[in-house]
Simulated assay, not measured.
Amino acid sequence: MASKPLEGITVLALEQAVAAPYCSSRLADAGARVIKIERAEGDFARGYDSAVHGESSYFVWINRGKESIALDLRSEEDRAQLSALVASADVFIQNLAPGATTRLGFGSATLREQHPRLITCDISGYGESGPLHELKAYDLLVQAESGLVAVSGAPGPWGRIGVSICDITAGMNALIGIQQALIQRERTGRGSGVKVSLFDSAAELMTVPYLQARYGAGAPDRVGLKHPSIAPYGAFTCSDGRELVLSIQNEREWASFCERVLLRPDVASDVRFASNTVRTSNRADLESLIRDVFAGLTYAQAVDRLTEAQTAYGAINSVHDLIQHPQLRTRPMNVRGLVAQVPATPYATEWDDSVFVQAPGIDEHGDALRREFEVVSGASI
Score class of each variant (00 low, 15 high):
G337P: 08
R336W: 01
I290P: 13
L369K: 10
R305H: 05
E259M: 00
P220G: 01
F257S: 05
T311H: 01
L73F: 08
G366F: 09
C23Q: 09
S239D: 11
L369H: 10
Y347A: 09
P326F: 01
I381A: 15
I123V: 04
R112C: 05
Q358W: 12
S380V: 15
L140A: 12
K66G: 07
L6A: 01
I178E: 06
S380Y: 10
N173L: 12
D49Q: 10
N276G: 13
R79I: 06
S239V: 09
V278I: 14
S129G: 03
M333R: 10
R272K: 12
E259G: 00
P5G: 08
G361D: 10
A302D: 11
I9N: 01
S56N: 12
G234N: 06
D285I: 03
I323V: 15
V293H: 04
Q212W: 00
R222P: 03
V34L: 08
P116V: 13
P157Q: 14
D78V: 08
D139N: 14
Y233P: 05
G107C: 07
V375L: 13
R252D: 08
W61E: 08
D285A: 15
D270K: 01
V163L: 13
G105N: 10
T280W: 03
R112V: 08
F236W: 02
N276T: 09
A274P: 00
P5W: 06
A217V: 01
G31N: 09
A231D: 02
D363C: 10
T101M: 15
K36H: 15
L118S: 07
Q310M: 04
A295V: 06
A20L: 05
E77M: 04
I119H: 02
G147V: 03
H365N: 13
A312F: 00
A312M: 02
L286D: 12
E350K: 08
G47V: 00
Q341A: 15
